[in-house]
Design a protein around this nucleic acid. Structure first.
Lengths: 139, 139
DNA sequence: CCAATACATACGTTTTCCCGAATGTATCCC
DNA sequence: GGGATACATTCGGGAAAACGTATGTATTGG
């Protein structure tokens, strides 16, 4: 029944990474689970646009969503395919080196420290560490 | 003068990898310099199509070409950006694990051993090891 | 139950990508 | 120089992607 799950679609995987908005989203997720409203606030782009890109990443199998009341939290999930996981992990590390990506992360940290100063984030849930990634921290 | 070479376009990089034909081409190059006619023969696709994808890879800065008489040899070049190089190297290793990619490589080996049996490859120059990648062989 | 919030999806348009077919260019050989 | 070979580029059409706008759905609070 799970016979065809073995072959991973590399083309689709890289296409998912071939968009700056999606790279920014992945960078913000990093090793945390994050609420959609933060993405909208930090990227400064329309909510439907963010939502569509998140759906794209979900279809590509590299993020998952979890509902918590009104809010949706997105987190990175490592592909089961080993090669994909290695490339993906390396990519996330690469994102951390990028200036623009660091800037996004800084904004996120700032927004989390004082969400009250962002009108759109009143009462929004804070990011939550993504436990499924902890095992990879060492490398 | 080389002031703006520092920022690598990640989006473009991943877009270049987001096409199966281009992934197959990169896989065939692997660690050798290869003549265009082999690509056409092994992928079984039109010469203009192959040529366009090679041009795409060249624009993305991950392959380079060298002319030798009538023939054009293509080879992989590692991006100067360290993060990109790491992801790229890992990607090439991943390609080697893929069944379909291994099949392409097998066809290439076969074609190189007896190019005379492939009408289109009469007198075509054999692949040449890509020396610029040797330093990375260890990892 | 109703309004408000948070997010997802549908729709129509514009842009981008990919292709086959045709044409252009460089090199070799006679 | 002229034809043949190897490859690159151009052109036009069709498919997919990306976007803004509008609308739908789930949840909360009153």
């Amino acid at each position: 029944m799970a016979a065809k799950a073995s072959h991973f679609n590399m083309e689709l995987f890289f296409q998912a990474l071939g968009d700056n908005t999606r790279l920014r989203l992945l960078n913000l997720m990093g090793d945390q689970e994050i609420c959609v409203c933060y993405f909208v606030e930090i990227l400064g782009q329309s909510q439907p646009k963010i939502s569509r890109h998140l759906a794209y990443l979900r279809r590509a199998g590299i993020v998952e969503a979890r509902r918590e009341g009104k809010w949706m939290h997105y987190r990175i999930v490592m592909p089961s395919n080993i090669g994909a996981a290695q490339v993906f992990h390396q990519t996330l590390a690469w994102l951390k080196e990028d200036k623009a990506m660091q800037s996004d992360r800084a904004k996120l940290t700032k927004a989390c420290c004082s969400p009250a100063t962002f009108v759109a984030l009143q009462g929004a849930p804070l990011p939550i560490p993504n436990e499924s990634l902890v095992s990879l921290e060492g490398k």
